[in-house]
Design a protein around this nucleic acid. Structure first.
Lengths: 340, 340
DNA sequence: TTGAAAGCGGTACCAC
DNA sequence: GTGGTACCGCTTTCAA
């Protein structure tokens, strides 16, 4: 394990010259530079980031805070972030902690306080999250992937618009009895993204003069729970809606599976629209509003690195794209067809 | 941002005494210790890990290398690792790189070479992976989560035994026409764990005198691909097996879905057994060999931290538990029932 | 264009 | 039990 002193000696120059040659900061003659480079190569020299950080204050390391790993959305974001970080020469330190959990507390008290990173990326923060202020006050570049948050730079899809788009898709097809499936159950911490989606749904229903028949059914954002919730919602054929707006693809897929098991034909007797663009959506021919969380992760890294490099750091909202992909889980309602 | 010098001054002691009081190494009177602690608290002092690492050589950071994030098994491992790391006061640096990928190369050349960690955890390495030697030669504690590998400490389930258990479960129920679904397709890099599972299947079939009817059908380890492969395998009712051993739960679930769509009753007309203990297994009433990747991650951290603390580092194989959970996707084959 | 020397923020040795 | 001081490995003035 050779240090820069060894490299300098091997190249016949001083430590300072070696440092300049290797980092590219400061004047070094072309000839010297290449000699130093060769020596470094030969010795297998790799700079100690620790030592460098100690003096420069830069760590080439980003902290990423996610509530969970094992969920499609978060996993995709992590992959996107990691990918662009590594190609930028940065390390990724991962923290997993649900908002308001005990882990969260120690995270802020001990880990982030060490400031062993140049910037922070957080995913799916809630507006009332105490941590937001703390993160902002660390004074390091900080960016949120998820909904808009006051005072900080954020990146994400517009969930209100998405809720509305999903609903309007069904309305346009002629549905009038449309339920929203995936409202956060009372037992769970509230989630802003879901709330915004359901708000979009309600707005669209209201505009269509259907406020009276709007209903928000609870379910957590998982396939099994979506399945269970759909199964109980669809069990009673008299109250069954003709269209379901699902809070995410996992719920949408759970709904499709539940419908099949109950002998309800999709889309003939039931239309299902969801949002995400999950890997499984195509297999279940799910009509969905696709977003690209990996791309959001990459874009977030780009923006964060810009800030680290000194770009303007005023809080901005960056809107991530989302587009409707129509598959075979949505169609006009049965009575419409009958009328034709 | 106060340093230890500020703390020392505030407590009226020297830097060395402050350091001893705070780190707990060396003698300090109780009285002094508490005064220093108070001062540190008051000033919001947090030690710079960088500076400490520079002199101690310890970073309190672990590198975790996974091929993917967004798959149930890997995601669960990551969560387990993160959880126990954080409670041990360690940071997690995450690297995502498929074996033999280009990312992999830069990972070793640039990132791991910086040695900014006290140990390395790698998941799902292949035996012919060039990186294994490199990792071992870094001289840092190194542990593999996955199959056994020569010369290094590993932790994981015994996939051969699992393949055999799955098959024997079906054999015991009376099945004789059993296919293995999930052999690695030729287009994919070979995967040792899958190979071991299929080898266990073949061994069990051979022992039962059924080597002639054994077959290995290709599929990647994803639900959509398991679905597609099962759909084509099951389409021809004349050649359809009565039992399927799936290489993982995703494939098993895909198979169940395919069977339902083809109108094949599970388990009456088709038994499906798989392995993993995926979150969705229960919902699909899938009989499976459960393993606990999060627990494996936690255990791996425990072992690694022991090594870092100086424990014996001779390579050992740690076997992770796996147990058969019988649900409603397996039953005696139809002809058996008919005979009763 | 290059080199000497001062420190970044701690820890650890040694003498007191 | 405590303080002085060298030093971890690098970057960065400043002078030559």
């Amino acid at each position: 394990m050779s240090g820069i002193a060894d490299v300098a000696r091997a190249a016949g120059v001083s430590k300072s010259t070696a440092s300049r040659a290797l980092t590219g900061r400061g004047y070094v003659s072309e000839h010297t530079r290449s000699r130093v480079r060769d020596a470094a190569e030969r010795l297998g020299y790799v700079a100690s980031t620790n030592a460098a950080s100690l003096v420069t204050g830069r760590t080439h390391n980003i902290a990423l805070i996610v509530p969970r790993v094992n969920r499609w959305y978060f996993g995709s974001v992590i992959e996107g972030v990691e990918r662009s970080l590594i190609s930028a020469g940065f390390d990724l330190t991962l923290f997993v902690a649900e908002p308001d959990s005990r882990d969260r507390e120690s995270l802020y008290a001990h880990f982030l306080a060490r400031k062993r990173f140049d910037g922070v990326l957080a995913v799916a923060l809630e507006p009332d999250d105490d941590d937001i202020e703390r993160l902002r006050d660390y004074g390091k570049p900080f960016l949120h992937i998820g909904n808009e948050l006051p005072g900080i730079t954020t990146l994400g899809v517009d969930n209100f618009v998405i809720g509305r788009m999903m609903t309007e898709h069904l309305l346009t097809l002629g549905h009038t009895d449309i339920a929203f499936l995936g409202r956060t159950p009372p037992s769970e911490p509230s989630a802003r993204d879901v709330d915004d989606r359901s708000a979009g749904y309600l707005a669209a229903m209201t505009e269509a003069g259907l406020a009276g028949s709007a209903r928000l059914e609870p379910a957590t954002l998982t396939l099994p729970d979506g399945y269970a919730a759909a199964a109980s919602l669809l069990a009673d054929r008299t109250s069954r809606p003709s269209g379901i707006v699902a809070a995410c693809d996992e719920i949408g897929i759970g709904t499709i599976i539940a419908a099949r098991r109950l002998g309800i034909a999709v889309p003939a007797q039931l239309s299902v629209v969801a949002v995400d663009g999950h890997d499984y959506a195509d297999m279940f021919t799910l009509t969905t509003i696709e977003q690209d969380p990996a791309a959001q992760g990459e874009e977030a890294v780009r923006l964060l690195l810009e800030q680290i490099a000194g770009a303007d750091a005023r809080p901005v909202r960056h809107s991530a794209p989302a587009r409707l992909v129509v598959r075979a889980s949505t169609a006009p309602p049965a009575h419409t067809l009958a009328a034709v």
